[in-house]
Every structure is written in C-alpha cells, then in structure tokens.
Amino acid sequence: MQRQGSIGGSAAIRVRVTGGVLLVAHLALVAWLTLRPLDVPWVMPANLHPFATIRDDLALGGPEAARRLGEGLALLAPLGVLLPMAHGRLCASPVGSLIRTVAAGTLVSVGIALLQTGVPGRVVDVDTLLLNTVGVALAHLAFVPACRARLRRRAERRRRSAVPQGDPVQGRTPTIPRVGIAPWSDALPPSSP
C-alpha cells in the first residue's frame, strides 16, 4: 500500500533507496571524521558555554573564521536533504518536514558529541552542536522545498499524459449520467388502510 503523498511506483523506491544509501555513506564519513582519536599533546577543556567558540572564531577574522564556521555548518548539512529523500514524501508539510529533519540532525549531533567524550583527543563543544543544527536547517530550506515542487510538477505531468483521451477513430468513450435515488414513497409498496 502506498503512503498518501509519497512518490509513486518505482521512482519512489529508487529515491528512497538512493537516499538511504547516501545517508548511510554520509553518516559513515561523519563518524570517521569525528570519532577518530587525535594524537595531540594537550586537549582544550570542553566548551559548554553557547557561542563562546563562535565568538573566538569570529575574533580570528577573515578566511580562518569563515573556514572554521563553514566546517561546523557543513558537517551535517547533507542530512537536511538526505533525511527527507530517504523518507520519500512529496506532499509533506514544509514546517513539519523541517522540524523532523532538524530534530533528527540535532539528535545525530548530540550522539556524536556523547560518543566523542570517550575518544582520546576529542572534546565536547556546544557550539559545534549549534552549527551542525543550523547547517541541517539551512540545507533543508535551500533544497527540499524546491526539489519537492519540481518532483510534484513532473508527477502531475506524467499523470496527465497517462490519462486516456479516447480512441481517435471512435471518439470519446460515452459516459452514463448519474441517476438519482427514487423517493422512498416510489420504492415502497402501497400500504393498505
């Protein structure tokens, strides 16, 4: 049974499978990048104060600040597109889709932060959680609504072209007009007094 509002037929399966495969590949890459032990002589303390690292990065100025902030935004940003793609729905509420995707991205980021507490050389940084979540939201807003609208238009064109228009030799197929229901008085046998 097809879910209401989902992509139809084999296209739905291809989109979901592609989204799922890319999602697993991206999460594997993120795990490799963030959960490898680092061989460093000393480790900074964990940052549990929101915006402290972001302020420090902005104080660096120029390309170094842009690189650091860009890395935080880009790490989980593909989840903003891959999660809805793996879900495979065309007619989803834009706000609901954004909330679900951002919540899932936040949970992934929190999970990575919790796992990093046991990895040598890695520390928890609350600003990384914020940047990762904003990156997921920005990627979702930038791509998902436009892609869904495009896929809906394509599905509608396919649906219209698949509707039979009748045989050109015989003309259109005749239709039977709807017949109304007779009043109860006509359907019941006459009553005897």
Rank of each mutant, 00 (worst) to 15 (best):
V163R: 09
R89T: 13
A12I: 10
V17D: 03
V95N: 07
P41Y: 10
G171H: 00
G88W: 00
V163Y: 03
V169P: 07
L82K: 05
P168T: 10
L69V: 04
P183K: 15
R172Q: 14
V179Y: 12
A28S: 05
Q165G: 15
L131Q: 01
D127Y: 06
P164W: 02
I176L: 15
V123K: 14
V179N: 12
N132A: 09
G121P: 01
M44V: 07
R55I: 02
L138V: 09
R16Y: 02
R16N: 04
N132S: 08
V110L: 15
R14W: 11
P190N: 14
P189A: 13
N47T: 00
L27A: 02
W184G: 14
D167W: 01
R153M: 06
G72R: 01
V102W: 02
R68F: 08
R152N: 03
I54Q: 08
R148I: 06
L23H: 04
P63H: 15
P94I: 02
G61N: 06
D125E: 09
L60F: 09
A187R: 14
Q4D: 14
T173D: 13
I54E: 07
L130G: 06
R36G: 09
V17Y: 00
D127W: 08
D127C: 07
Q170D: 14
R148F: 06
L82D: 05
P145Y: 04
A155E: 07
R148V: 05
S6T: 15
G8F: 12
L58G: 03
R160K: 10
R14L: 14
L83D: 07
P145Q: 06
P174L: 02
V21G: 05
T34N: 04
L82Y: 00
V144M: 02
G105S: 07
V15W: 04
T106P: 08
G72M: 03
I13S: 09
E71Q: 13
M85P: 08
R67Q: 10
Q165R: 14
L115Q: 08
G180P: 06
G62W: 14
P174R: 09
A86C: 06
L76M: 04
I99L: 12
V144S: 04
